[in-house]
């Protein structure tokens, strides 16, 4: 189920994201040149986004490349502790729509909406325990997976360093809760080159639980599509094979 992560890149941004510089076409060529078996074209959305149908039409019109699977997605942040996602109301997921919704921890999903890392640090200083903060984050992530239908966890736990925590602060039951929800909901989980997460302990636990893992560069320009160093060195395919 988990192919060699480095032959997949399930998080590639194009010019549909306003901070990315390469077209879907340039990314496709880069994916082919990197020898990838699978690439997911992903762009950022928020509730006000209207471009998704055009983006999908553009990807659908790309020339086929033999041996290269082309998938689509939109990336949205988790808005609050209930797992609400920052996606347009009319977003279609599945047939006729995007293949997956990438669930992003761009901000801390507070009970009243997104908290900036600084606000989160202040709440922790004011008495929110680190374990409670992690509990809220894990619960919101689980709920977001349930809401997304077909989801993919983008750079999961990349938020932790910004709120003064690391993956080592996660308990095994936190990790297990995310893994079980991912399996239950069919959510894929990326191992993200750019943010170097999740780390080996979490990746092995996810693999052991049967989570589908994919590689992700979170590329914003074609030259980095399918290029891995941390992912290749940290969680090689043979490690994962041993786990299973």
């Amino acid at each position: 189920m988990t192919a060699d992560l480095t032959r997949t890149d399930h998080h590639v941004h194009s010019t549909w994201s306003d901070d990315a510089v390469s077209t879907t076409c340039a990314n496709l060529a880069a994916a082919r040149d990197a020898g990838l078996a699978s690439v997911r074209m992903v762009d950022h959305v928020r509730t006000s986004t209207t471009y998704v149908p055009e983006f999908l039409a553009e990807v659908a019109a790309l020339p086929p490349v033999e041996g290269l699977e082309v998938l689509t997605g939109v990336e949205a942040k988790i808005l609050d502790a209930s797992g609400r996602l920052d996606v347009p109301d009319d977003l279609v997921v599945g047939a006729g729509g995007v293949d997956r919704v990438l669930i992003a921890d761009h901000q801390f999903p507070g009970p009243d909406g997104p908290w900036s890392p600084r606000r989160t640090l202040e709440e922790i200083e004011r008495g929110l325990s680190a374990q409670d903060a992690l509990g809220i984050l894990v619960e919101a992530t689980v709920r977001a997976m349930e809401r997304a239908g077909r989801g993919q966890l983008a750079h999961v736990f990349s938020l932790l360093p910004k709120i003064g925590l690391t993956e080592a602060d996660l308990t095994d039951s936190h990790v297990d809760a995310v893994a079980q929800a991912a399996v239950r909901t069919g959510t894929t989980v990326e191992v993200n080159e750019k943010w170097r997460c999740p780390g080996p302990r979490v990746v092995r636990a996810f693999a052991a639980a049967g989570v589908t893992l994919v590689g992700s560069t979170d590329s914003h320009e074609a030259s980095s599509v399918g290029r891995y160093s941390w992912v290749a060195g940290t969680v090689a395919a043979e490690d994962l094979a041993v786990v299973r």
Partner: peptide
């Protein structure tokens, strides 16, 4: 990977795209 092309400072959507960039890049 830390190099970003942005819109001209006078473009209508310049601030929106810069705020979005700052959020995504933390």
């Amino acid at each position: 990977g830390a190099r970003f092309l942005v819109e001209p400072g006078l473009a209508d959507t310049f601030v929106d795209s810069l705020v979005a960039l700052c959020e995504r890049e933390r």
